[in-house]
Amino acid sequence: MNGREAVIEVRGLRNQFGAQVVHENLDLEVYRGEILGVVGGSGSGKSVLLRSIVGLLRPAGGSVRLLGEDMLHIGEARRAELESRCGVLFQNGALFSSLSVADNVMVPMREHYSLPPAMMQRLAALKIALAGLPAGTGAKFPSELSGGMVKRAALARAIALDPDILFLDEPTAGLDPIGAAAFDQLILTLRESLGLTVFLITHDLDTLYTICDRVAVLSQKRVLVADTLERVERYDDAWVQDYFQGPRGRAAMGAAERREAKA
């Protein structure tokens, strides 16, 4: 993937809350069509990074370019247009609890396009099926869904407008291993078929080994290293070594190797 186009370009990002500096001089690129895994210890500012890229948080300094445009210095209208080309899956789904799943998926369509209701219904049903939910889920309310189904429903809403970039905040957290593996495959499938670029925050080592093209390690207030998994594993840093060479890291690595051997 040489001469790749960077769809997200973060330069010299600085975030702070009061006296506490979360990010200092943080640089990161995400290239079109890749799945970038973002890892880091608790409190290292992974979610803060996501929030400042999608524009939910105004950084204290630096620049964020999304699809080639400087998010911090463009007008409201253009910004809203760019935001509609991003889909975000929040950690707990953030489905609107007063709306059915289908209505949740239709919210962005209703806001950004004027479509006949029947067409929206069909498209919503399509997205729900693409997210791997059984037919009939659309009529249900978020409170009637299991944890895994909530994530899938939230994913259906995130891809409602065919975004260019999909942001996922710990998509497999709280799912059982089978559900988590199925969700990983779903993201792979959607990436291939919808041509998505995926920005994925995760603690799940299996997810990293299974679907990520590159991994960015957030530590010491910046992106320590962002590269392929093989190179990141060998990176000379105590935290990175602990993370990938610890018992869980090695187990995930072994599992990934076994999978490859089988394939």
Binding site: R122, L126, A129, A135, S193, L194
Partner: peptide, 21 residues
């Protein structure tokens, strides 16, 4: 790529039901 998109949509559409609300 577009073939993949089309196939994915075709597969998903086969699983949707077009019931009234």
């Amino acid at each position: 790529n577009r073939r993949a998109l089309l196939d994915a949509v075709a597969a998903a559409a086969a699983r949707t039901e077009t019931g009234g609300r």
